[in-house]
């Protein structure tokens, strides 16, 4: 694995959303290795495996069967190995409660899933090129919700 590559992990139960996501990353100028999982349970199992590389950034859908994104976020932030991983919430919802809850439990940025492919590419580019910023406190809820 090339050390300049960003390790990206995506948890999303929707197959077409996963395809759009990986396609958009492929077309972006940033070198990435993407691994995608299809729900919260699979995500946590994958993260707990010894040989799983710690991702640079995790894109986390909220509305997932079995274990939802918020529950995963809480668990991730309680794990020593993962407590500093950048977590980008990646959801259809822009419900204030979801934004507040995920902010409170330590997500780094909140992305409302875009409705067109070009915007998706722009959003991912912006988040990935700023991934390192998300490890730097302080961070306020005012710029938590990503705006282009």
């Amino acid at each position: 694995m090339d050390s300049s590559q960003l390790i990206v992990l995506l948890a999303d139960d929707d197959a077409s959303d996963r395809t759009n996501f990986t396609d958009a990353l492929e077309e972006s100028r940033i070198k990435t290795v993407v691994h995608a999982v299809k729900d919260g349970v699979e995500l946590m199992e994958y993260l707990k495996k010894e040989d799983t590389p710690v991702p640079h950034i995790l894109f986390l859908d909220l509305n997932m069967p079995m274990k939802n994104g918020l529950a995963c976020l809480k668990e991730i932030r309680s794990m020593d190995k993962l407590k500093d991983v950048a977590v980008a919430i990646y959801s259809t919802s822009s419900y204030e409660k979801d934004i507040e809850d995920t902010f409170q439990y330590g997500a780094n940025v909140y992305i409302k899933k875009p409705t067109d492919f070009d915007t998706l590419k722009k959003v991912l580019y912006k988040v990935l090129s700023a991934a390192y910023v998300y490890r730097e406190p302080p961070f306020s809820i005012e710029n938590f919700l990503l705006k282009l």
Binding site: D14, S16, D17, N20, T92, K113, P114, T115, D116, F117, D118, L120
Partner: peptide
């Protein structure tokens, strides 16, 4: 959103 995404 998926309809819009597919269309785009």
């Amino acid at each position: 959103r998926k309809i819009q995404m597919a269309a785009s």
